[in-house]
Amino acid sequence: MLLRSISRRLLIGLIQLLGLTIAVFFLIRLLPADPVSRLVGMNASEQAYAQAQAQLGLDKPVLEQLALYLGLMPGTQPGLLQGSLGISWVTNSPVTSEIAAYLPVTLELITLAFLLAFVVAVPVGMLSALNPGGRADKGVFVYSLFAGSQPEFWWGLLFVYVFFFQLGVAPAPLGRLSPMTSPPEWVTGFILIDTLIAGQPAKFVEALHHLMMPVFTLGFVLSGPIIKMVRQNMVRALQSDFVLYANCVGLPRKRVARYALRAAMAPSMTLIGILYGFMLSGAVLVESVFSLGGIGQYAIRSVLAFDYPAIQGVVLVITAISLLVYLALDLIHAAIDPRIAH
């Protein structure tokens, strides 16, 4: 039953991805932009222009371009069906391998940031709901006043100033490792995993040290909405009939709090999922502050250069990850709340 519903969701996800790919394919080409002249320059000869256009395949009819991209024309070049996202027009290297280089940076950063935010925000939100007007609740108010009203890059800069420049406990915001260290052999792209695979604990610690500030910054900003959501859902759960009844039968305070937390977590998971999908590209500001080349930066670069295959690749990958995250969260949601039928 569970497996069937998962595979059904995955199948629907694939169809969604295909639809999105085709939509994005046409939408990009509707942009009032000329990627060829962007590549060859404004002063290029007509001949050079035509040559570049032919090289990019832009001289062919649009439907043929789509078929090529999808990999429906065997014997020409590998397409989506063959697992290729095409060749970047700017760098001439496969989009797949470029995304494989950029994506893990972002995934690592935001996954850790979400873990941090989750671990901090859920108990804080819960405490502030259990004792409205109490110390935790007041703290939350002050925090959300500040954290919520300032952009994350500003917090990043502030933390760099305090922890690197003033206190010296954080490393310089210059990437995932210090510039003097050679990176470990590329296996997964996740530096924490790769250093462990390579058996270099010193580098693992160094990578962790470098991740500390960006993760903290992002976690700091992300905690705000999560705390609010948990608090609000928890307050609502505490007023529900079943919590009242749990008090009526004299369950211990702790058990009642657990009842309410579980009821509050189910809807909060939805917000966390949406935030995660959003942060895949939304973490770009924090990544820039700490010189981490993430998928967001790759996306911006591609858009500015009209690098069609790269844009398509980024959209596709981010969507695919978001869909997987939503699926995972729906499964968690169903595990928390049995009323959610598969």
């Binding site: 079943f242 009844y245 709340d337 009323r339």
Partner: peptide, 16 residues
């Protein structure tokens, strides 16, 4: 002191 309230279904924890 035991109590039975109105609206029994809403008074049971829906998740347990």
């Amino acid at each position: 002191i035991g109590i039975i309230v109105q609206n029994p279904r809403a008074s049971l924890n829906p998740m347990l």
